[in-house]
Amino acid sequence: MRRRIFPLIGLAVFMMLPPLATWIGEPYLVSTFTRIVIFAIAAVTLDLLIGFGGMVSFGHAAFFGLGAYVSGIIAHHAAEQITLFGLPATDQALIIWPLAILVSAAAALVIGFLSLRTSGVHFIMITLAFAQMLYFLFVSMEKYGGDDGLMMLERNPLPGLDMSDDWSFYYLCLGLLAVVLFILGRLINARFGMVLRSIKQSGPRARSLGISSLAYRLTAFCIAGAGAGLAGALMANHNGFVSPALLHWTLSGDILIMVVLGGIGTLYGPVLGAVIFLALEEFLPLAFEGAGLPGFKEHWRVVFGPLLIVIVLFAKSGLYGFLLGKEAADV
């Protein structure tokens, strides 16, 4: 029962956030909320890999950053009116965003195909290595700003929506998060999801049943990559800026933490994880200041690090699992 109600309550809360921010006189908070929603998209797709596919990818930021760069680069070409691969560039979101998703999915196909030859720690490390490779690739791309990154002066326009309005953009991201969650929910409960979980639980047995484990896992990897690509494109639009920092391995770590904070193997958990993580990031420094320790303001991680350890050691099912009790596990 709670399982059905929580997401609806969550949606209602998210809907209410911008007016709430205005009401308490902190309208700039909408920007923070948008970040949360965007990272939530990245986190739920990563959970498809970890929680349902048993693939601990430590390179999810690669697809996130790739999606961001695709929109950044195309918008840059459009703004400077330079052709891209001989085609005129556009700044239309309806063209750029699907492209970002497509490119990220294609990269996930290649990286996943190579990485899935390994398992366990090797899989963790090879996904990290591929992400680092892409990171250094963008650092050395002088044409697109290298380490300094690339500015996007305007958000990609979408017909019928004023993209420069922060509220509109927030609700758009929220809508996309809902769509992603809907699709993932359908997938997980369909045959695809069951096969994926059975492969996770017993790779060899699933194989003996005649299921091509690689095909299923690779498909999941591509879907997750595509979702991260969408999140990346949104982040590029939100920041008005892309830089290699979006592909850095610590960001992969951050997204991983969101998944665990919220609850591995739950559909909605990672959303909650993103909320907690980014809220802590925003408010722990302020808490130090409030506690009369302004000198510790920039050292909030000294609390966050041990907190993370405690959560991993003692609260494995994440906050969502805690809230839902047993119900969380069965999706």
């Binding site: 902190e26 309208p27 700039y28 920007s31 990154g149 920041n239 008005g240 800026f241 830089s243 920092a245």
Partner: peptide
């Protein structure tokens, strides 16, 4: 405010400074 040398942080702080 400290930007930590990260453009993303800089943007958030700027937003707060300018809007709030």
């Amino acid at each position: 405010e400290d930007d930590g040398r990260k453009p993303g942080n800089g943007k958030q702080i700027a937003e707060r400074f300018l809007k709030r």
